[in-house]
Design a protein around this nucleic acid. Sequence first.
DNA 1: ATAAAGTAGTTTATGTTATAAACCAAATAT
DNA 2: ATATTTGGTTTATAACATAAACTACTTTAT
Lengths: 96, 96
Amino acid sequence: MFKDLDPILHSQLRLAVVSLLVSVKEAEFTYLKEHTNSTAGNLSVQLQKLKEAGYIDIEKKFKDKYPQTMCKLNKKGLLAFEVYFQNIQQYLKPKK
Amino acid sequence: MFKDLDPILHSQLRLAVVSLLVSVKEAEFTYLKEHTNSTAGNLSVQLQKLKEAGYIDIEKKFKDKYPQTMCKLNKKGLLAFEVYFQNIQQYLKPKK
DNA sequence: ATAAAGTAGTTTATGTTATAAACCAAATAT
DNA sequence: ATATTTGGTTTATAACATAAACTACTTTAT
């Protein structure tokens, strides 16, 4: 029987965001937007969901004159990613 | 930049179905239902989508007195699965 | 000085998905 | 006979993804 895939992570954009945050540990909105090739609106919504899920922390500051949104994967988020990674293996490697 | 994930396959149930069909090459509705732990309604809908996408072939026969729906992954479906497999690797293995 | 364009987002509207619930037709069990 | 089970499909609804519109401000051009 297949293990359920965390619906928060089983979303192309949110998975891409988390994937990036695993590597860089901290990234700003515009960095995520560029590297995921997403629209600002979509990214904004999906970051909120990751935050509501308790997977990332978001800090809003000002960088010079412009607003800056910094995102960081937290412990819970990293664990969720690791679990997702384990669980999807079963789907990707069908037993012969 | 992340490669887009085939939306037909990036669905837990459809991915599970295709994953099973990669192994067994042919399976009946009830087998898929049991092994994916899905409801009949949901499975029915998702099998139609896989069929519409041209990924599986569905053959409706009678086994003794009961209707029997046989599902088979075809070439296009197998290829799509392989591409999906390749593409999702990028999300799952963030570069250090 | 002011209008136009750019930055960094959020909110809202709309279409798409996933899922459950209801339904159908026939077979079998009570 | 009628109730339940088998093997599904159709329909209704809630959740999701996305684009478009909007907010608030800054920079640049006129």
